[in-house]
Amino acid sequence: MNQTAINNIETFIRTKLEDKEHIIAWRGVISSEAISNILIELEEKLLKEKISVKLRKKTYNISVECLQNLYHHCIPLPDAYQTIYPGKYAIFYINLLNKDAYMLTTGNFILQPKVKSMSQKIDKINTLTQEDLKEMYKFILNHQKLSARGGGGLGLIDVGRKSGHKLTYEFLELDKDYYFYVLNVKITEE
């Protein structure tokens, strides 16, 4: 294990989650039950915020999709890491940027070969206009079958479309085989 790499990831997670402006700051093992609990907490918190219905619904919708992306794509690390990062370990975090905007962040471990394909996928989404994203969404919706576990390849496109902002990401190296993948999604009314 590379302790420097772990420290680097830990510093990133702690700095993020300890930010005082958050409305949700969660780290743990992602599961269907964990998603339910996060969504209950999120909904309660969003209802208390002085924000428009549109922003509240958009934030909830994007959160659902991001949490389910974690659920479907997060992988457990080898045994040596299990005491630090057990199971399908992930983070989910939302902070208030200003009264009209949130920043949602997810983090999870992925295999090294995924780094390139994920970067390419997000870069591609970022080059598309809202109209392009809409057409791409509709094409995949109409032509691609659901996988056995219920994923449809639409999640990230839907997130990009609903966000309306460029997605940002980074990969923190854990070791030569595993990376911590961080996705940031800005959410505003428009």
């Binding site: 659902v64 999709e65 389910q68 919706l141 691609q144 449809g152 639409l154 999640g155």
Partner: peptide, 10 residues
Amino acid sequence: EYFNTSSSKC
């Protein structure tokens, strides 16, 4: 009220 992309195909 809400639906996810997995449901959208169904």
